[in-house]
Design a protein around this nucleic acid. Structure first.
Lengths: 224, 224
DNA sequence: AGAACTACCGTACAGTGTAAAGGTAGCGGC
DNA sequence: GCCGCTACCTTTACACTGTACGGTAGTTCT
């Protein structure tokens, strides 16, 4: 009777995937970035040091988290037309970075790209090559689009307001600075654009993306 | 004799500027990002809590540091032609971010822009407006260029190697992954481009910048 | 039965930001 | 002279971080 099935040997053992899922979820909710090992362990009903059995250190954990984000991004379908495919991918990447705001800052420290990341990059490059880009041209296009999307996500995240209500409070302070320091152009942009009811900084994304994709189309066959 | 000049009342008192200068210098040298309050204080011959007399909290300190970086960036000269001026500014910004790699990641958390930052933005917008961009057009151009430069800096910083020697070591691991996981396009790009002797990822910067400035020139008068 | 291995826990340490309070030097006013 | 006042810095303390080290149940292999 001591060898009964024992449905919960103590609890169902942790898996890498379960830990990463919980970590991503906590990071998304809290808005405070990657959770601490202790908090993450608590949420999993376990003590902090148990996590080190599944991840060499915290960096390995965050690497796994970013790879999970990459897995969410829409891959270009095989043989798809490069132009709409790149547009879709850029939007998808941007939305993933918006869902997981901690991820854009994390790019920095990611020590090594995970499998989803590599697969993602391969598909994108493949799509570009199929669309007539040379190897060097595909590298140009890839670097350009990615830099833009990451940079945009970073900027969007660093805006000092989230809602329109916030905006008005913050705006007063900035407007004051602008009046004090004689910054007429900035002031103009605020009063005539940014503070107007319908303005949404997020819409700048499409404008820039259009310009970039258009430029790529124009250079596609010239490069190299 | 008790009222002598006393050249060192105990020591010359700290100033905000001195603290910020030391902090930036430490961050640049160490490569480990913003120093801790204790380490920074040590370097200044002072105890950690003394710093809180000059900065409300650490965030205020990092805000000051980023503002100091902005102060290094070349401003467009008054009335300068927008095209070369924007190119120079983008290069200057990128080089500042390369000198201070911790700064690009810090963009994120900067709570409020300092005076140098605001002055910088004002000058850039002014140059664009003077070059015939509408308010909305200048906003488009500004958002696009900045996103690109920040994103590029972020990517460049996240490359898993620094020197060509490092590269070869890392490459073997990645090549192995690529072979295992069937990533032919990525493999091709590595063998035919990235691992070739003369290749320098940094040169991609100019390619993308050209494309963007060209697109801006093309749309300058159409926008809005 | 004993050994080896897996998965987890307890404890401990050095490091972090910072709140609270205290000290001390230099000052102007009585 | 002395009394506060302010500017600057220190001491102490607390809650929190990542993680090294060693231990301990339970399972599996021999």
């Amino acid at each position: 009777m001591t060898t009964e099935p024992d449905p919960t040997p103590r609890r169902t053992p942790l898996t890498k995937a379960a830990v990463l899922g919980a970590a991503v979820d906590m990071a998304d909710r809290s808005g405070a970035g990657v959770p601490s090992m202790r908090n993450l362990a608590d949420r999993l009903g376990v003590k902090a040091m148990a996590l080190y059995h599944h991840f060499r250190n915290k960096e390995a954990l965050t690497d796994g988290m970013t790879d999970l984000v990459f897995a969410e991004i829409e891959l270009p379908a095989d043989g798809a037309d490069w132009h709409p495919a790149m547009r879709d991918r850029a939007r998808s990447l941007r939305e993933a970075l918006r869902r997981h705001p901690w991820a854009s800052a994390l790019m920095d420290s990611r020590a090594q790209p995970g499998p989803a990341t590599l697969r993602h990059h391969d598909a994108v490059i493949g799509c570009l090559r199929g669309g007539g880009f040379t190897v060097a041209g595909a590298a140009h296009a890839f670097a350009l689009i990615d830099a833009y999307v990451y940079g945009f996500a970073l900027q969007e995240r660093s805006l000092p307001f989230e809602t329109v209500d916030d905006l008005e409070g913050v705006a007063e302070g900035i407007m004051q600075s602008m009046a004090d320091a004689h910054l007429p152009h900035l002031a103009e942009m605020f009063t005539e654009l940014a503070l107007k009811p319908g303005y949404d900084y997020g819409e700048e994304f499409e404008v820039g993306l259009d310009l970039i994709l258009d430029g790529l189309a124009r250079r596609r066959t010239d490069w190299r």
